[in-house]
Nucleic acid binder design. Structure first.
Lengths: 259, 259
DNA sequence: CGATGGCTTGAGAGGCTTCAATGCCGGTGG
DNA sequence: CCACCGGCATTGAAGCCTCTCAAGCCATCG
């Protein structure tokens, strides 16, 4: 409820998918936090470590990293402000992939103990968290398709679409700009390409007039044309889901808004 | 508890990760089921449909399919008998990817209503289901790395490793064989390759003596050599997790085995 | 002002695809 | 009983997309 509460963007994001009561919102906003600054290119979750907390991105950008055979890295998920980056660690504390800040990033660490508490006390929150994990998996699934079945140009365009859509929470104008201050090398790690080829691909997109990139900001002259080119269908991001309650109704009994 | 209960393999699988009480096991085995035969290459979950049930693979093989731009398909997950293929639909009923039988497969459909009931009644089961979703996501994450960052040979070998490991529930001998009756075209859809190149790659693996493939059965002369070649580390499959209870302890109060 | 990190561009190589044709096998119907 | 057919496996040749290696440029920063 405090505007500058670091948990507020997170609450806003999950609330559009799973309707919560005022009490439940308070519970989330009241979660104990440990704020932390992470500079670019440094891990804040190490591979193989056992976690007793989950991380929420407050400001900046973070990526989930996996390791290939000869040390080459692959980003499997991009996390924007408001994302609980490793909520899943609550259920499976062994970190099977690392988390790294892509830019200077401020994160918040939330102890599993506290999360467990509100999850037990408010089943609707448990459901909501569970749903977030499921949707993260759906996004990851699309990530696979993007990387495997599209060529470099479409791939990059699709990434732009996804990121823009998530930043703007689904309310798209026909023409706008957004910040994506990542290096081409980091883009390459996301797209399964090399930095050199990302460069060429990017310039090709610019030459086609699909985007206009300058210093970490991406301008989109025509959202419709980009979507068309990128084969982008936002359904998998699950933004359009009408807020509804699956288990909360039963679990909490009455006092809950329906559908 | 009935040996031929179609839910028994599923219970066995999840029980090695999340310890359950006798009562909870009974609750799972008592779930209402609708058995169904699905012949190869036919969808049993259509893209874009809204689901009121989840599907459990009893016998055969199923894949989760995504669609690329020009209709080319990509398999994002392979489901073996005992897998609850779309447990996630309980939280997010809109099917964002299709499910298809790869061979003649018998599945069981379990109404969401019934799942919701036991999830509400037994929080430990909710936790357990949630964990399954999280682990599915971890497997998917490794799938990304496998496809993006490894060449065709290593890719195929890694798929063999993963499948073998899951079939045998992690207890590997040095030398064994297992069934994988899928066509090379289906393998291609899993690996992000073409059927032609899968063929060549497979023959290269055979020539190297890493595997021996005949008519849908894969023989592995040396598990260690294959693992080495495939860059396979089973940690992401979360088989070795000691059974422990995160929220069940609190949620159910006493009467629960710890750690 | 040198050093560093990121961006840009070129040339050559390689892995994978595409297109095409052949062979094998099991099923089906005359 | 056999010819036919369709799905699958196999192999070849050519081409393309992307990688690798290499060099030069620009901005920022100590």
């Amino acid at each position: 409820v405090h505007a500058q509460n670091p948990l507020a963007p997170f609450l806003q994001k999950i609330h559009r998918r799973s309707l919560l009561t005022g009490e439940e919102k308070e519970a989330i906003l009241g979660l104990p936090v440990r704020i932390e600054q992470v500079s670019a290119h440094t891990d804040f979750v190490r591979l193989g470590s056992s976690l007793d907390h989950s991380c929420l991105i407050v400001h900046g950008l973070a990526g989930r990293f996996g390791q290939g055979p000869d040390g080459n890295r692959q980003i499997t998920a991009l996390h924007l402000p408001g994302d609980m980056a490793d909520l899943h660690s609550l259920l499976s504390p062994l970190a099977t992939s690392a988390m790294q800040a892509l830019t200077t990033t401020t994160i918040v660490r939330i102890p599993h103990v506290a999360l467990r508490e509100i999850v037990v006390r408010y089943p609707a929150i448990a459901e909501c968290f569970w749903r977030e994990c499921v949707i993260d998996a759906a996004v990851l699934s699309e990530w696979v398709i993007n990387i495997c079945r599209r060529n470099a140009g479409v791939r990059l365009a699709h990434l732009y679409c996804e990121t823009a859509y998530r930043y703007r929470l689904g309310s798209m104008a026909e023409q706008f700009a957004f910040e994506l201050p990542v290096t081409q090398h980091q883009l390459a790690d996301m797209l399964g390409l090399t930095a050199v080829h990302v460069n060429r691909t990017m310039r090709a997109l610019v030459a086609r007039g699909l985007v206009h990139v300058t210093r970490g900001t991406v301008e989109i002259p025509s959202w419709r044309r980009l979507v068309d080119f990128a084969d982008f269908d936002p359904a998998y991001l699950h933004f359009e889901v009408a807020p509804r309650v699956a288990m909360g109704v039963v679990m909490n009994g009455a006092g809950r808004v329906q559908l």
